[in-house]
Nucleic acid binder design. Structure first.
Lengths: 245, 245
DNA sequence: TAATATATGCCACTTAATGACACATTAAAT
DNA sequence: ATTTAATGTGTCATTAAGTGGCATATATTA
């Protein structure tokens, strides 16, 4: 009779899920008795849960019942600091791609991940989405060798990119000459299928673009952090870069 | 105005929390505009959240606003079924992009996420990475309108894609004619900045490509699932599609 | 065939949620 | 001091979402 308000319905639903998750045998009569609702309402609630993706299965007839198939959802996922960072980077990339399924669910996850950071760092973290670009140009696929051998290099780049720290790299240029530089990794750019880093190059004291797969070695520059230079992308250096090739 | 049902209210609340957690400056006017509710209702929602223990703080007067004083540190991340699915999809996309930072960390996360699924479904889930493609062609950006208004549509597509279920859609073709079809969403394809679905079209009984932003309405076909047809991509239909334009 | 389940359609009733409007309160800018 | 821009609160009419009840369909087992 009494109309349920939002809060109590959230509670009711959570209790229902709790009962279903405990791997007991439940009939709708049992459930409705525990939840103090009519059978009709219970069926509606179950339908609504199914509709939202919960794998609720039921058996009709004598000995039948309702149950939740398998272990669904994740109760508690422990994520290390690095894992959180990389996950956020991954989400930022998906977002940069105009991904049409960047739904509220993923937004919520992003928000949950933000909580891993202290207040003063969050602005930096939430800015990464704007530091990723997809170029209209694409590169011939043949030349690109995504390096799975260089996990440690990848991690170093990833970290210095996110934490805005300078990085020492050994780089092999297009004409195969090797050089050692200190760079500030400002922006990340995809010109499919090649990934680039738009950086400030301390060696030349100018903006430069580095193919990630041409970076052969990395060394962190301990505590030297840098501030973003929006002019690096305001100048559209990469478009110029590509059209000049 | 239209009354909100339980589902949309859950959704609304989640969006509100998401907005608050992002470290931006929010006034109630901003929030109510984004959420499409009256100021009064928004205040009620905020009060309700405070009541449930959310540390919502607010400043009155000029320059004031509302914010969530977050507690940071991730010990246990709770993910719903849908969140797990969409996160996996996001990771699969990043992986498809040759993302050089798809390091062991992200792989580990993927493994953890798999565990949310019962054994018999894991193969299906792990297959999604192979159902995503990036085309060499890119589209003129002007025409593409990533729809943030169609959250429910996105979710429907996303779900039917992952669970390999048929989907009813209303589609607006290039010559602006609207048609209603039942499709099997087999593959997801990015021809930057446009996302497509490579599907089997029940109407024509042939493979077809659908621009996701041209899908205007969706309806689940309850229990009708489909099996993958590798020939859809073996024939390279999208390359042909683009070169024919 | 009977018994026991889930599942669904329909209808009337209640009331929680909403928006509108007015107004109080606080704080900063001028 | 006054204005302005923000958060809060009170009240009231409206309305559609949620509910229960009942009938009935459907599936499964003893």
């Amino acid at each position: 009779m009494a109309k349920t308000n939002f809060k109590s319905r959230v509670e009711r639903r959570s209790r229902l899920l709790g009962m279903l998750r405990s791997e007991q045998h439940w009939t709708t009569s049992d459930l409705r008795a525990h939840l103090q609702v009519s059978q009709r309402t219970l069926m509606r609630e179950l339908a609504s849960l199914k509709d939202e993706g919960y794998p609720i299965e039921s058996d009709r007839g004598r000995g039948g019942g309702v149950r939740l198939a398998g272990r669904w959802g994740i109760e508690r996922l422990m994520l290390s600091h690095k894992e959180v960072i990389e996950l956020l980077l991954a989400l930022a990339i998906v977002e940069s791609l105009n991904f049409p399924f960047m739904t509220s669910n993923l937004q919520v996850i992003k928000q949950k991940l933000y909580q891993a950071f202290p207040e003063n760092q969050r602005s930096k973290v939430s800015r990464i989405r704007k530091r990723i670009f997809v170029s209209k140009h694409f590169r011939s696929a043949a030349a690109y060798q995504p390096s799975d051998a260089h996990i440690d290099i990848s991690q170093a780049i990833c970290e210095s990119f996110l934490e805005q720290r300078c990085l020492n790299i050994d780089y092999i240029s297009e004409d195969k000459r090797c050089s050692s530089r200190t760079i500030e990794p400002h922006y990340l750019m995809l010109a499919w299928p090649v990934w680039y880093i738009v950086a400030w190059d301390h060696l030349r004291n100018a903006p430069r673009i580095f193919r990630i797969d041409r970076i052969k070695n990395t060394k962190k520059v301990a505590s030297k952090s840098f501030k973003l230079r929006p002019e690096l992308i305001a100048d559209d250096p990469y478009e110029h870069h590509f059209s000049s090739i």
